[in-house]
Amino acid sequence: MKLTFRGVRGSIAVPGPKTLRYGGNTTCLEVRGDQGELIILDAGTGLYQLALTLFGELPVEAHLFLTHTHWDHIQGLPFFIPSFIPGNTVHIYGAFDPVDHKDIRQILSRQFEYCYFPVREAELKATITYTTLKERQVVQAGGVTVSNIIMNHPVLNFGYRLECNGRSMFFTGDHEQLYNIYPPGEEDWAEYQLYVNEKNKSITDFMHGVDLLVADTSYTIQDYPQKKGWGHSTFDANIDMARAAEVKALYFTHHEPVRSDDDLERVFQEALSRKKVAQYGPPCFLAREGLTVDV
């Protein structure tokens, strides 16, 4: 497989001189299977950059997997030009909304309502299919096998595992390291910790041994205490998770919108030395818009 980062920013797009090197678009990953299958993970504003590259290969068949439907992960969707062109096919997959009781089509169709967007969903010319996924439901997209697990975020968020010809990768979507809501010593701490350990293990088992892990790394350990419960992880927690899951390489993404390129590189280097990555691995990288890596 080949992975190209089309958007690596978290929360909101931040174009400008301070984000030129790593990019200002929000989450979108383009993955190509060995037969050229097009798998897209999330539809942040980076999706538009991807759309512009697709005109040379019409008609397009795209498999779009949404980790969750917070704005920064769907904002590019109405501007995914292949959806407007007859002959193209877009398969959209995502989780059910258990609170408002909506399937993925109902959730997304709101984006195309009159007050938000000039074109109605029904008027999209491409063939669009919607699949509301259950946890661990397996989807075959050409030669690429895609499966999912619920991560930890303020809304149901799927982490996706992709496999193709013996190679594999995992994308967390938005994910906060699990934590105990009870202080140590309190009566309920131990029981809660059991579940935390169980969930952690199910996540690391699920991504175990992947060749490449892309992880939501919004925060530094200094940021984290003020941002606890907001649904995003730290460099340090992701390095720990990658080691526990014995992944072969780790890419940090969902960069904080306030982080300039220089700041990002600095906090990245600090984390690497604090966690002794050079010594204990795994190889770690910053995701950068436009960067293509072989999986």
Binding site: A95, F96, P98, V99, T132, L133, K134, E135, R136, Q137, I149, I150, N152, H153, P154, V155, L156, L178, I181, D188, E191, Y192, Y195, V196, E198, K199, S202, G229, G231
Partner: peptide, 20 residues
């Protein structure tokens, strides 16, 4: 559509998140 049966509220909070 959960893959696992949830048997307690604490477990549900861990597996689904506090906000949900």
């Amino acid at each position: 559509g959960l893959a696992k049966k949830i048997t307690s509220i604490k477990q549900a909070v861990v597996f689904l998140g506090i906000n949900t």
